[in-house]
C-alpha cells in the first residue's frame, strides 16, 4: 500500500530531525529577535531603568534620606553609590517588575493568537510543545533582561553620581567593590529565578485566551494577590507555598559569608510552579482548537 511507504519514509525524517535538533535554537533565536525588536519591550525596559535613575536624582535634589525612612538601603546611597542598584530592585520587585513580566508572559500565546500568527506558526510547523518551550524561554530571557536593567543601570548611575567604595554588609563585615559587584549579580540572579514561577503562570493563562490583555492583567493581579496573602499572619501555613514568598528574601546574599538557603528554597519553589503550570499549559495547548 502506498500509504505505508509514505509513513515509513516520514518516520525516518522525524528521527533524523530529533537527532539534529538544531532547528529549535533557530526558532528560539527568532523568538528573541522578535521580542527584542518590539518597541514595547524596550519601553518596558526603559521604564525599569527609570527606577534607579529617579531614586538617584531624588536623593541628589532632596538630599540624603534620614536613616530608617523609605526603602531599605536608601539612606546608604549617599555614602556608597553601589546601593542604588539594590535599592532600585527592592522598589521594583513588588509591582514594576511583575507588571512587565505579566505583559511578556501573558502575551506569549494569546498575543500570537490575537495577531492570527499562531495558526501560521503551528502549520509551519513549529510543534505545539516546542512553541511553548520557546515562548517560555523568551519570557525567561525577559526576566533576565528586566532584572539586569534595574541592577546595571542602578550601579552605573550610582557610580556616576555618588562616591564608590568598599561596602559594609548587613553582618558588619566590609567587602571590596569587586566583591560587592559579584553580590549584586547574585541578587540579580535571585530576582530572575524568583520571577520564573510567575512566568510559567503567565504562559498557562496565555493559552486560555485570545485576548492578550486579559492574560497579562490576570498574571499581574495574581502577583499582587500572592503578596497580599503573604502579608497576612493568619495565613502563615500558606506562605511557604506562595510564589512571591521569597521575592524580597535576598538579604542573606549581603552577609559574610553568603547564606544560600533562601536562594535554594526559592529555586525549588519556583521549579515547582514551573512544573505545575508548565504541565497545565502543555495539557491545555496540546488539545486546544486554534480558531484564531
Amino acid at each position: 500500500m502506498p500509504g505505508e511507504t509514505v509513513e515509513a519514509s516520514a518516520g525516518s525524517v522525524a528521527t533524523r530531525d530529533a537527532r539534529t535538533g538544531g532547528g529549535t535554537a533557530w526558532l528560539l533565536g527568532s523568538e528573541l529577535l522578535t521580542l527584542f525588536r518590539r518597541r514595547r519591550t524596550w519601553a518596558m525596559l526603559g521604564a525599569l531603568a527609570l527606577i534607579p535613575i529617579l531614586i538617584a536624582v531624588a536623593i541628589i535634589i532632596a538630599g540624603p534620606a534620614p536613616t530608617g525612612r523609605g526603602p531599605a538601603f536608601l539612606s546608604e546611597i549617599t555614602n556608597n553609590g553601589l546601593f542604588v542598584g539594590v535599592t532600585a530592585i527592592l522598589v521594583a520587585i513588588p509591582l514594576f517588575l511583575p507588571l512587565t513580566i505579566g505583559v511578556v508572559a501573558g502575551d506569549t500565546i494569546a498575543g500570537e493568537a490575537s495577531h492570527g500568527t499562531l495558526r501560521y506558526l503551528l502549520i509551519a510547523p513549529a510543534g505545539r510543545i516546542r512553541l511553548l518551550l520557546v515562548k517560555y524561554a523568551g519570557a525567561a530571557a525577559f526576566c533576565v533582561a528586566g532584572t539586569l536593567t534595574v541592577v546595571v543601570v542602578g550601579t552605573l548611575v550610582g557610580w556616576l553620581l555618588f562616591p564608590i567604595g568598599p561596602v559594609t554588609l548587613l553582618s558588619g563585615a566590609t567587602v571590596s567593590v569587586g566583591d560587592a559587584l559579584v553580590r549584586l549579580l547574585a541578587i540579580a540572579a535571585f530576582v530572575t529565578v524568583s520571577l520564573l514561577g510567575m512566568s510559567a503562570i503567565g504562559l498557562f493563562l496565555s493559552t486560555l485566551t485570545t485576548v492578550p490583555v486579559g492574560a497579562m492583567a490576570a498574571t499581574a493581579i495574581l502577583a499582587v494577590v500572592s503578596q497580599i496573602l503573604d502579608a497576612l499572619p493568619q495565613l502563615e501555613w500558606l506562605h511557604p507555598w506562595l510564589f512571591t514568598h521569597y521575592w524580597l528574601g535576598f538579604a542573606d546574599l549581603l552577609r559574610e559569608p553568603m547564606v544560600w538557603d533562601n536562594f535554594i528554597d526559592n529555586a525549588v519553589l519556583q521549579a515547582g510552579y514551573l512544573v505545575v503550570f508548565g504541565a497545565l499549559a502543555i495539557g491545555r495547548f496540546l488539545t486546544k482548537d486554534v480558531l484564531s
Binding site: V13, A124, G127
Partner: peptide, 10 residues
C-alpha cells in the same frame, strides 16, 4: 523569516 525558522525542515 520568522515562520521559516519555525519549520525545522527549512
Amino acid at each position: 523569516r520568522r515562520f521559516d525558522a519555525a519549520d525545522r525542515h527549512a
